[in-house]
Amino acid sequence: DIIVVALYDYEAIHHEDLSFQKGDQMVVLEESGEWWKARSLATRKEGYIPSNYVARVDS
């Protein structure tokens, strides 16, 4: 799995977006363009995230 960590807070604009806080970790489910589908490890919610707001966690 690709794990990313939030670099900034993000408040969902559309209902399919995923809100998150700086430091939150998410599993990337699908990478396509600038918006990635991800699942929050904390809340288990899924939605689209702006890929420029996150960084990959080296395992």
Score class of each variant (00 low, 15 high):
1 D>A: 13
1 D>R: 12
1 D>H: 14
2 I>C: 12
2 I>N: 11
2 I>S: 09
3 I>E: 03
3 I>G: 02
4 V>T: 02
4 V>Q: 01
5 V>C: 08
5 V>T: 07
6 A>Y: 01
6 A>T: 02
6 A>H: 01
7 L>E: 03
8 Y>H: 09
8 Y>C: 15
8 Y>K: 10
9 D>T: 09
10 Y>N: 02
10 Y>K: 03
10 Y>P: 00
11 E>N: 11
12 A>I: 03
12 A>C: 04
12 A>N: 04
12 A>T: 04
13 I>F: 09
13 I>H: 11
13 I>E: 11
13 I>T: 12
14 H>G: 14
14 H>N: 11
15 H>Y: 11
15 H>K: 14
16 E>D: 15
17 D>Q: 15
17 D>L: 09
17 D>Y: 14
19 S>V: 03
19 S>W: 04
20 F>V: 03
20 F>P: 00
20 F>G: 01
22 K>D: 02
22 K>V: 09
22 K>E: 07
22 K>Y: 05
23 G>F: 05
25 Q>G: 04
26 M>G: 00
26 M>S: 00
26 M>V: 02
27 V>E: 09
29 L>R: 04
29 L>H: 04
29 L>M: 08
30 E>M: 10
30 E>T: 10
30 E>F: 10
30 E>V: 10
31 E>Q: 15
31 E>A: 15
31 E>W: 15
32 S>L: 13
33 G>D: 06
33 G>W: 04
34 E>N: 13
36 W>A: 05
36 W>V: 08
38 A>N: 01
38 A>I: 06
40 S>Y: 04
40 S>F: 06
40 S>Q: 10
42 A>F: 08
43 T>P: 02
43 T>R: 04
43 T>N: 09
43 T>H: 05
44 R>Y: 14
44 R>V: 06
44 R>G: 15
44 R>H: 15
45 K>T: 07
45 K>A: 10
45 K>V: 08
46 E>N: 04
46 E>F: 07
46 E>S: 09
47 G>M: 02
48 Y>W: 15
48 Y>R: 11
49 I>R: 00
49 I>K: 00
49 I>H: 01
50 P>W: 07
50 P>K: 07
50 P>L: 07
50 P>C: 10
51 S>Y: 10
51 S>T: 06
51 S>F: 10
51 S>A: 13
52 N>D: 11
52 N>R: 12
52 N>M: 10
52 N>Q: 11
53 Y>T: 04
53 Y>Q: 06
54 V>S: 00
55 A>F: 08
55 A>G: 07
56 R>Q: 08
56 R>N: 07
56 R>E: 06
57 V>C: 11
57 V>L: 14
57 V>K: 08
57 V>W: 09
58 D>K: 10
59 S>M: 13
59 S>E: 12
59 S>N: 13
